[in-house]
Design a protein around this nucleic acid. Sequence first.
DNA 1: GCAAAAGTGTTGTCTCTACACCCATGT
DNA 2: ACATGGGTGTAGAGACAACACTTTTGC
Lengths: 249, 249
Amino acid sequence: MLPSENIKDFLDQGPEYLPSVSVDCVIFGFHEQQLKVLLLEFKKTKAHALPGGFVFKNESTAEAAKRILWERTGVKDIYLEQFYTFGEPNRGNWDVHKATMASHGFDLTKEHWLLQRFITIGYYALVDFSKVKPTPDIFSDVGDWYDVHDTPPLILDHNRIVAKALETLRLTIDHKLVGFNLLSETFTMNELQSLYETVLDKKLLRANFQRKMLNLGILERVKKKFTGKAHKPPFVYRFNAEALDKQNS
Amino acid sequence: MLPSENIKDFLDQGPEYLPSVSVDCVIFGFHEQQLKVLLLEFKKTKAHALPGGFVFKNESTAEAAKRILWERTGVKDIYLEQFYTFGEPNRGNWDVHKATMASHGFDLTKEHWLLQRFITIGYYALVDFSKVKPTPDIFSDVGDWYDVHDTPPLILDHNRIVAKALETLRLTIDHKLVGFNLLSETFTMNELQSLYETVLDKKLLRANFQRKMLNLGILERVKKKFTGKAHKPPFVYRFNAEALDKQNS
DNA sequence: GCAAAAGTGTTGTCTCTACACCCATGT
DNA sequence: ACATGGGTGTAGAGACAACACTTTTGC
């Protein structure tokens, strides 16, 4: 199918969506000591944006967010949390959308549904970087990871949305043990500490961090050790979900 | 003006609102050792509901919440915070609305804008109980305070919205010093402690609570003392905003 | 003086911080 | 052996709970 046909399909879908409501996803990953965000780049205009979309009339907003995540990352069962709803009447200008559509041969009038006011519900997702293959959508040819502190200018108020998501993650990670979703199933204590240091943006002491984590009683030490460099091999840990449930109850 | 004319005006206002989006306010007050919520009671159906409303097309959702608060409580400059957006496709049934409108002589078809799906953005407000005169709207003849743990069944998913607001308040009050908004300008340490005990639903020790609060450095001791019973009069404190700003910076 | 409630002091426990020390591995 | 990074021990600082004590009022 030609891209323009895809886009026509999309534009025709307008009436199937809940008016005025959109969903944007801030997808966090962790790689090489950096906290990353998944961003899309529009084909023609080279503008950057968060993966987002609209909500079908009989779909919950959380389901919409999951659907979008699946389309962009190919992963289901993702850790997903709503963090804020952005309800300003003027969240930025829509010229990029207009230009993008024009470049595909669709001249949208000011009254077109895509150019109306939308409030957007922000969800953030924590994913295992290694399991995710960024998938572009019909408007973007590239989906790629960016250091959260070094993002390009984004369309609309998406920079603010990223900032708010990061702020929420920071406040959350300390008392909700959410960080494990950003690592692969097994990990070393050092990896976990790097993650915390990156998110909280401050150095932590090995000794104390380790004790704190182990005292939570939610880490299971996998017997196997690491093989690698010229030093004592670290233990590999696994996150123990049952123990966490006990804590929360 | 007749009530039915008011209601006609309201129904005609549909096109001026942002479709699919509503705002609901959980208004907390503190009185006689109880945490209270302001609820409306519909005239005919006797159903209870949160004060809520719709968002004008060129108004932010926060402004809409403030407007609704002002209409219901007569107070401006209220502490207001967004806490969650409820985006399920089926948030309960709208029969009450239909019945209410029917009782005023308006038979709404299934396609009427008021009976469509709405996502609702929850805001909670903390107000000085003594300054608030609950004001009913055109659909309700009574606005009244209820103990948050003893609310009547509410329409739609409003019970859940109250529960979520309370949960958010609990998590917030400890590290964001938000409780002062629920008291009058000056208050005794005992009142403040009662508030915390009620919100957190546990007993605290006088001595330790007092130290903790005073050590925050945000309470100013008003020289005047209390007059009353047969015991040592308590100091009256005032919340010192400047000191708080210093802390947050 | 006495009851009642406000306010202060003290002590032990727990947690976090900082740093010192020991352990296992590859070269 | 030794450099490198993983893991443990411990002393000091600070926070918090529990309880005892003093203070000020009306009766």
